[in-house]
């Protein structure tokens, strides 16, 4: 597992206070909906702030955010491409 994925899991759990274990989250885990992590739009905003701080990657508009924030893997891909 890449270092970025591990850091993303930590961010999700610590910043959003998710009550799941890191090993329950995979690259394919969906961020929204009852089948996924159940995030909301304010959680996304917090993740945007955290990702900028942690990885120096900016996500400034909602269209980009909607594409990036589907799964842990999609965030990882965006960070890799834009670092």
């Amino acid at each position: 597992m890449s270092n970025t994925i591990q850091k993303l899991k930590d961010l999700l759990i610590t910043r959003l206070k998710l009550k799941v274990d890191a090993d329950q989250i995979t690259e394919d885990t969906q961020l929204f909906g009852p089948e996924g992590l159940g995030l909301d739009s304010i959680d996304v905003l917090e993740l945007v702030v955290a990702i900028k701080k942690e990885f120096g990657v900016e996500i400034a508009d909602r269209q980009t955010a909607e594409k990036v924030f589907t799964s842990v893997g999609s965030i990882n891909k965006y960070i890799k491409e834009n670092r």
Binding site: S41, I42, V44, L45, E46, V48, V49, K52, I59, A60, D61, R62, A65
Partner: peptide
């Protein structure tokens, strides 16, 4: 402003 993601702002 720390972050904008309209309509949400930090």
């Amino acid at each position: 402003i720390i972050q904008t993601l309209p309509p949400l702002y930090v």
